[in-house]
Structures are given as C-alpha cells and as structure tokens.
C-alpha cells in the first residue's frame, strides 16, 4: 500500500513575514496523492491553496515567504531538503504545474514551440528533430488543430482556451508523474472550461498520472475528483472521497459550501450563503478558525483548536462538535 503513495504533504506551514506581521498562509496542511489519482483541493480564495501548490515545487518566493515547518515527501524523498539543482530536475520532469492565467503565464516573446521544447531539452537528452516531433504530438494530444503551424505562433496569436491547452502540453512535455493544476479553468469561458476539464480527465486516463487539482468551484470537483480536501484558512477542514463529501459532509464549512451551490431542487428558494468572509491570514481568530461564521459554534470553539475526527473509510473532518453530535445519535440508536 505504501508504495502506491506518490506524494504526501505533512503538517506543512508556510508563513509570509513582514516586519510588523506574520501571515500564516498555510498553517499545518496534511494531505496525500496516490498514483493515478485525481485529488481536488477546494477552498475560497485566500485560504492558502496556491501557496501549498507552489511550495511543493519550491516556488514560494523567499523572502518574504518562509517554509516554517512540515515535510513534503515525493516518492519517499523529502522535497524541502533538496538543493536547487536537484529541485530543478524534479520540476517539470516529475512534477509539472499548470497555472491559472494562461495569458500571462506564457512568455510573450518566445514561440510556443520554443517554450514546450525547452522543458524537454532540459530534462531529456534528445535531439532537436525528435523534440519537434514530440512537441507536435503533445499539441495534438491536447487537442490543438494543425499543430505543425501552431508551433511557430506566439502566445498572443492564440485564444484563451488554446493557450491553456499549450500550458497543459508544456506540463505534459516530460511525462511527469504528478500534474498540479492551479485553477486552470477560472480565467476561461464556461464552454471552454468544460473542454479543458474533459482534457484533464482524458490525460489522466491515457497517461496514468496523478493530478492535484486546485479549485474553488465545487461543480468542477464532482466532475473530476476521486478524493477531495476542503481547505479553510490554511488548514484542511475536511477530507474524503467525493461521494462522502458531497453526500455526508461533516464539517459546517463544507456544509455551508454545499448549501450555497445552486441546484435544481432549490429552484425558487433563496440561496444560502456563509456569513462573513475568510479571516485575514495575519489576524486569524483564536481557537477554530471557522468559529466566527459557524452556526454550530459552542464556547469551546473560541478557545480550543479543533482536532481531526475520524468517521472511518478515509473520511475525516475537523469539527469535534458535530462529531460528538453524530456519535450521540448513533449511540441513541
């Protein structure tokens, strides 16, 4: 079982320090991605999803960023202890990343052929002719028509969806084991979003790789995820298989998120919204970070940091209050 684990992040803490304050952007995150698995990291903007992803690749700018603690094990190898050279041979080669804004994430002065083949030439020892063939094949795989001609185009000549496909092709260039996709569809039109999601699913199936998909959109999660981690204010609030999360959510935050999803059964009714907003990472509340917005909060939530409660079958939630209540109902029965 252990060798099936691709990457595991253990109690990761990433702080951003300025001389007055310390923003605890990621505050003890633990999660795993197995081989050939699609895992979703869900949360509102500002909850630390992107920083988590960047720290896996060692791309958090230091300073002001600071990896304050924790471990990241990739195939048993601690990524945080690697020096620059070894980290470079992991980036793009074993772990690749697709960013949110395809327009700004592609270098405007190089052709897309240059940018795709660059990663190949760095990590794989193959001649330029083969590189070119490989680029064409990659572009075809991600669904770009007439790839031979597109190779010599500059990013500004492509549409938004095409650019994101190019980004994906770049990420696939060296056949990585893990692709981290950081909200890859947020900047795109809804119709294009759907195509890109299908593309991810297709890639995941045909190439047998793992995907860590970061999003704030629960609708996307149902489409793509095997397992889901719900993040809130720099910590994992709830984790489990997609069906567990969607059908038996055990954390008030997850419940709130689900309740605020529009759906057919709620037609004509007022949509729920979670009161308040995500706390500022530099000024988090004491105790449970969610307590100011929580409908179930009891006085102990103000002072005690909540522990993960195990519901079995890989379903965990960081809310002792609800855990006690469920236990009681089970006991009563």
């Amino acid at each position: 079982m252990k060798d099936n684990r691709l990457i595991s992040v253990q109690d990761l803490k990433v702080y951003f320090r300025s001389n007055a304050t310390t923003a605890r952007a990621v505050d003890g995150v633990t999660f795993e991605v197995d081989r050939e698995e699609t895992v979703c990291l869900v949360g509102e903007s500002g909850c630390g999803k992107t920083v988590t992803a960047l720290s896996i690749l060692g791309l958090v700018p230091v300073p002001p960023g600071d990896i304050a603690g924790g471990r990241i094990l990739f195939k048993g190898q601690g990524l945080l202890d690697l020096d620059d050279n070894n980290m470079q041979s992991i980036r793009g080669n074993h772990i690749a990343m697709v960013f949110q804004e395809p327009l700004t994430s592609l270098n405007p002065v190089f052709t897309i052929g240059d940018q795709i083949s660059e990663a190949i030439s760095i990590h794989k020892n193959i001649d330029t002719g083969t590189q070119r063939e490989r680029c064409v094949q990659l572009l075809r795989d991600v669904g770009i028509a007439a790839p031979e001609q597109r190779l010599n185009d500059y990013p500004h000549q492509l549409s938004g969806g095409q650019r994101q496909r190019v980004m994906i092709a770049m990420a696939l260039a060296c056949d990585p084991e893990l692709i981290i996709a950081d909200e890859p569809t947020t900047a795109l039109d809804v119709t294009v979003q759907d195509q890109i999601l299908r593309l991810f699913k297709y890639i995941q199936k045909t190439r047998a790789m793992s995907i860590l998909y970061i999003t704030h959109d629960l609708g996307v999660v149902t489409h793509i995820a095997d397992r889901v981690y719900v993040m809130y204010s720099g910590v994992i609030a709830e984790q489990g298989f997609t069906s567990q999360i969607f059908n038996h959510a055990k954390h008030p935050y997850t419940r709130g998120l689900l309740a605020s999803l529009p759906s057919r059964s709620k037609r004509g009714k007022r949509l729920y919204s979670i009161p308040g907003s995500v706390p500022d990472p530099a000024h988090k509340p004491e105790g449970c970070p969610f307590h100011p917005r929580c409908p179930h909060a009891i006085p102990s939530c103000w002072s005690e940091y909540p522990q993960m409660c195990d519901y079995g079958e890989g379903h965990l939630a960081r809310c002792p209050v609800l855990f006690e209540k469920t236990k009681k109902t089970i006991d009563d029965k």
């Binding site: 007055a20 007022r270 919204s273 308040g276 500022d280």
Partner: peptide, 25 residues
C-alpha cells in the same frame, strides 16, 4: 424580515490602518 435575516454585514478582514500609517510603515 426575510431580507433582514439574509442581510449580512461584511466585516473587514484585518485591523484598518490609515493611509498615512501605511505610508510611514
């Protein structure tokens, strides 16, 4: 009444600094 129940004040995220304080910092 329903509206009132629904209406929520969005709280500021962090203690507010004046422009000048920020400037000086």
């Amino acid at each position: 009444k329903e509206f009132k129940e629904d209406f929520q004040l969005e709280e500021p995220l962090a203690p507010k600094k004046t422009r000048f304080q920020e400037f000086w910092l």
